[in-house]
Design a protein around this nucleic acid. Structure first.
Lengths: 341, 341
DNA sequence: GCAATTATTGTTAGCGCTCTCATTATTGAT
DNA sequence: ATCAATAATGAGAGCGCTAACAATAATTGC
């Protein structure tokens, strides 16, 4: 079946003036009914509301933004939506913001700081009332743009450096170190790390550094490190496993920078007859839903993307209301010891 | 550390007029440099560009939208971002739209048609130049609003009914039927289905109906059906398994409406010593990354959320360019036969 | 009962941009 | 050289709304 083209009309042509006319009041009164109903008599409010309903009036946001200098939008920049942690995070940002009538503009940086900078620039045109960023690392220009934007900026997923403005996240370094301590405690001698490219995924890099410091402090050899090209797919966990074993066949413990990678590796180990955890201990990151269900169950680090999302949104809202608040909020991460490590 | 509040300023106060003044041209010429550079001499273009760079000018999108009657935004409404299929879908919508300088406004309906209607209404205020919806089922008012919006509307994830305007998806009924045929062919006698609440998740409902029709046509008893409350979590797969076995202990094949549920059930079966697929066959839906990796590997239906996302975005773009196109595009789904069924 | 509030509505200006059209500079054809 | 095109810029108007102020009506206090 074919369909006809249509002229991309905007709205239904009903303006505030038309509503005002029908209701027999001034446009400003219609505006009040919408924005400050308490300033209007119940009688006129109903009269205007009737006109609005009758004409199916839908206010023009652009005009409203322009006149009021307030966009009721918040920009969120994440590496990709195709990762459950980030999408869960954004989902919760939206849940809180939607309640306040604030729309969310999303940008995917695809793990590129250049692309992130472009996004900041282009999203700035929409005059969002806040920015929620991923990570603390940005191009100089992106940072400058954010800083001079005049709106609250919340950086998330990382608390291991100084934020531009506000920050809610967890310490990737400490999380990596916690895993290191567990591995050392269980007697691992050859520890490895599989994560994303260090320049593109600085959170992953920090986890490695935390791990590394503990491992070296314990007098063990520096961990073998495998860097996978971004974006990583689940099956890259197997690639990572292979590369680790190639670099150091005696490896007895691996930390993967995400649970899906760890799960893929863990399942592959089963298939190959590698005994997890005795021959090879595996630790993931993120505590995905399936991690508790596989056999052996996956030891991992639980972070709180949902809480982080809500908190980031709440920080934007508080900042918009002029509330003074802590610059950096560190959420607890938790090492979940299960069967695999 | 505490931080000071700031007045939520908008932009950096630099307007087109300021740029024009510095460049020694009229504001209109600046506008041309930004929007139609081909209408401007190379010399003036460079002069203006220099002024833009020097002042760090960022155009005001609201003003632009208002004057040009074009928002360069597209609204996308999905049930939730916390489901890998939908987030992958949105991710690909964005990939294509971003290239054209179009921002994406996301709304989560949380599987509620009422909430979806609210979202349509509130997003309409932003005058998006297109809507990408999930599913074909909406409240009457939501449909009316979309229809009269004057912009292209693409409904996705379902082709089993008439669209408002455009549609790209797959046949959930046929997909369910394909699974039914496989189960019947492998000799299943007591078939069951685990999915979401039928009123909230109509796609899941259609998969059931496809399954049901084949099962009944084969002379078998109607499938046992378990409806889980939305939103479903991965571990609900175990709940579903339990409920199925309680309702019909002799069940020998179950179709789950999503792979994560099926995976949870499959892993649980292993744990309980239920032999998959001989004692109980399990089929998932969506072909998630881990589905091929578990043992036994999960038989499932592969759909193409990424293609669907790109295609939906492309249809919006084509429609905006006035191109006439097929109303409904049906993407192929594919039954991936693996070890579990 | 009359000025002084206080509630309710209307009027006047823009917000910052892009239309449309008018103007001037440039080029080409005769 | 002369007129008609064409190219490049500018001027004026207005997109649909809200902020600030002005005007009117209803209320209050003494």
């Amino acid at each position: 079946m074919m369909r006809m083209t249509r002229t991309g009309a905007n709205g239904n042509g009903v303006t505030m003036g038309k509503v005002a006319e029908l209701a027999g009041v001034s446009p400003q009164t219609v505006s009040r009914v919408l924005g400050h109903p308490e300033l209007v008599t119940e009688v006129t409010r109903l009269k205007v509301q009737a006109a609005i309903d009758q004409l199916n009036y839908i206010p023009n946001g652009a005009a409203r933004n322009l006149a009021s200098n307030s966009s009721r939008m918040v920009a969120v920049i994440i590496p990709t939506l195709a990762s459950s942690a980030y999408s869960a995070h954004v989902n919760n940002v939206m849940a809180l913001l939607d309640e306040r009538g604030i729309s969310v503009l999303i940008g995917n940086s695809e793990y590129s700081m250049q692309r992130e900078e472009q996004l900041v620039q282009s999203l700035l045109e929409r005059r969002p009332q806040g920015f929620i960023m991923t990570g603390l690392q940005h191009t100089q220009r992106a940072s400058d743009l954010l800083r001079s934007s005049g709106v609250p900026v919340v950086e998330t997923w990382d608390t291991d450096a100084a934020p531009i403005d506000l920050c809610v996240g967890f310490s990737n370094i400490n999380a990596g170190a916690d895993v290191g301590r567990l591995m050392v405690a269980r007697g691992a001698k050859k520890i490895a790390f599989v994560g994303g490219n260090r320049d593109q995924d600085s959170r992953s890099d920090r986890r490695f550094r935390g791990l590394q410091s503990v491992v070296e402090a314990a007098g063990l050899a520096a961990p073998v490190r495998v860097e996978l090209p971004m974006p990583m797919r689940t099956t890259d966990g197997i690639t990572g496993l292979d590369q680790v074993l190639e670099l150091e066949p005696m490896t007895d413990a691996i930390l993967f920078s995400a649970d899906n990678l760890a799960l893929a590796a863990l399942l592959e180990c089963r298939r190959r007859g590698i005994d997890v955890p005795h021959q090879l201990a595996i630790c993931g990151f993120g505590d995905y839903d399936l991690s508790a269900l596989v056999t052996p169950s996956l030891t991992t680090v639980r972070i709180q993307p949902e809480v982080m999302g809500r908190r980031a949104a709440a920080m934007i809202l508080a900042s918009l209301e002029g509330q003074v608040q802590e610059s950096t909020v560190t959420l607890e991460h938790q090492l979940i010891r299960r069967g695999s490590c």
